[in-house]
Every structure is written in C-alpha cells, then in structure tokens.
Design a binder for these strands. Structure first.
Length: 147
DNA sequence: GCCAACGTTGGC
DNA sequence: GCCAACGTTGGC
C-alpha cells in the first residue's frame, strides 16, 4: 500500500526549483517529534507532496521516497532523515487558499495543523489534489501508483 | 507534574 | 510586522 505525505519548505531557503536540480535530496533538519515520527513511517516508493510555505503557500511538486529513515547526518541527536527524488511538478500549483475553500481538502492537516512540517496525506486528499491540478498520476521508478 | 516563560513556525 | 498556535525548557 502506497502512502502519501507532504513536506514543507520555505522557498527562499530551499525551493522546489532547487530540489529539481538534484537527483537525490536528503530531507534533513527536522526537529519536531511528530514530524520525525512521520518521517519514520515513510516507505520507499511513497509519494511526497512538496509545499512552499510563507511567501508562496502552495503545493508545487511531487517527489518520491527512495531511502527510508536513517540517522540525520546534521546532528548526533536522535533525529531522522529520508531521501527523496523529484518526480514532477504539479500542472498548476494548488494554493493554500484553494485548499481551504475546497470542501474535500479543507480537512487536510495543512489547514488543521498549520505548523507541522512533515505530515501524512490521505489517499482521498492525494487524488483530489491531482484532480484539482490536472496532474497526471506520476510514473514512479517503483511502478505506477495504485489507488 | 504543573505551568510560566520563551522560541519558532507560518498565516495573515 | 504582527500575532496565534504550539512546542520546549526549566523552576518550583
């Protein structure tokens, strides 16, 4: 069973464009226990929505987990990282304002837990995001997404 | 174990 | 720039 997640990044610090220039992105630096535990639940092949916070406030891209959690190399304390790769951009970004006004999406943790930087996305929400943005279901190196 | 103080995130 | 939400720290 493939699962869906969402990570946030402040685009002035690390943007989707930055991510797309890399083959593999080590998602490090998470320092919140709930976010860390969510990282530890990610499995290879899972889909990760990439959200721009602050100035932009929109989901902009889709990535995929390619390495499950390991010790965050930026600290010796007990924090975790995962590796992801960029898969594709959304055909059009989906703004937080759009998400808040969409009856099917306003229950996302993006809205209800606005400060959580790594969070699960339900399959229903994931399908709705793809539908709203006319984004084809992304092909993945681990095979197509099963719904 | 409680809670006040404080720091950070992120929307507005 | 402001501030609400919320997590962490540390005194008691």
């Amino acid at each position: 069973m493939k699962h869906y997640w969402l990570v946030k990044s402040e685009p002035s610090v690390y943007s989707w464009a930055d991510a797309q220039q890399e083959k593999i992105i080590a998602w490090t630096g998470v320092r919140n226990y709930l976010a860390r535990n969510t990282l530890r639940s990610m499995r290879n092949g899972d889909i990760v929505f990439f959200y721009h916070s602050m100035s932009e406030k929109a989901i902009v891209g889709i990535a995929q987990v390619v390495r499950e959690h390991y010790q965050d190399p930026t600290t010796t304390e007990d924090w975790s990282a995962v590796d992801i790769i960029p898969l594709c951009s959304l055909s059009s970004p989906l703004s937080l304002a759009d998400i808040k006004t969409d009856p099917q999406l306003c229950t996302m943790m993006l809205v209800t837990h606005s400060r959580l930087s790594v969070q699960p996305v339900s399959a229903t929400h994931a399908q709705r995001i793809l539908q709203r943005t006319s984004t084809p279901i992304p092909l993945s190196i681990h095979g197509p997404i099963h719904t």
